[in-house]
């Protein structure tokens, strides 16, 4: 049996909005396809080696409360930055939600003007404009990036269509630099910044997004893309997704 290893980064510190569900869902769907699934939790204090990164099928990182982010930030910058950066740039498969998405950019400027440096892997920044500006909260429907839709691992396993659904809840607004592609374009909701309709980021095999729900719960096509790509399988065995497809369809009719 082939192994399927999920590297769950900062499980304790970054798990505010049910994002643990993403790891459970990946594990479940991979197991159903006969993979030997293992979840490796990487936290503050875990000593990483290059070999640990090489055996990862998917790297997952969620978002956290301020206190949680404070606890893991130094550890990430000081001991894991290089590994995460190399992993992403060399085409490792990864899913980064909300707070961790913000951390991969240049910086996060908080409401009081203070600057938190990011990993600077990508040319984007996030700014919080203060509590007077409306927080980006609500249901989201978005149209998936065409390149991703046409990717063989996505296309072959896609029984949903070209939409993503979820729930966003973020104070910071993210602005992508030129040359970066969003994961999707919102048709309902704020997305990255409430201005340019972009939502998330898609780069090589890295998916970044503001969507909770958790994102993989009602978007099985995205979950299967991550599994198919990381295991180099074009077409995964079909699962009985009747309920999940209904849940996705029903979500498209929700109000923001």
């Amino acid at each position: 049996m082939s192994r399927f290893v999920i590297g769950y980064f900062y499980k304790e510190e970054l798990n505010l909005y049910g994002d643990t569900g993403n790891v459970d869902i990946l594990a479940w769907r991979a197991k159903e396809r006969g993979f030997d699934v293992e979840v490796k939790v990487v936290g503050t204090g875990t000593e990483l080696r290059a070999a640990d990164m090489q055996e990862l099928s998917v790297l997952f990182m969620g978002g956290g409360a301020d206190s949680g982010q404070k606890k893991m930030y130094e550890d990430l910058i000081n001991t894991k930055k290089k590994y995460v950066k190399d992993y992403i740039l060399s085409g490792g498969v990864g899913l980064f939600i909300c707070g961790s998405y913000q951390l991969l950019g240049k910086y996060y400027k908080s409401a009081d003007g203070s600057l938190l440096e990011g990993l600077d892997i990508f040319d984007y920044y996030t700014q919080h404009f203060g509590h007077d500006k409306r927080r980006s909260t609500g249901n989201v429907v978005a149209t998936i990036n065409k390149t991703l839709l046409e990717d063989v691992c996505f296309k072959q396993n896609n029984r949903i269509g070209d939409t993503l659904v979820g729930f966003e809840n973020h104070g910071g607004r993210t602005y992508l630099g030129k040359g970066l592609a969003p994961l999707a374009k919102v048709t309902l909701g704020f997305g990255n910044n409430g201005e340019d309709y972009t939502e998330g980021l898609y780069y090589k095999n890295t998916i970044c997004s503001y969507l909770h729900g958790p994102i993989l719960a009602r978007n099985p096509h995205l979950a299967d893309f991550l599994i198919a790509r990381s295991t180099s399988t074009d077409k995964l065995k079909e699962l009985d997704d009747t309920l999940i497809i209904s849940a996705h369809t029903a979500s498209k009719k929700l109000e923001q």
Binding site: N15, Y17, G18, D19, G21, D24, N139, F167, A217
Partner: peptide, 12 residues
């Protein structure tokens, strides 16, 4: 609460 994500914090 309008976000149902929390149901994934129920221990499976």
């Amino acid at each position: 609460g309008r976000d149902v994500s929390w149901i994934y914090d129920i221990l499976p």
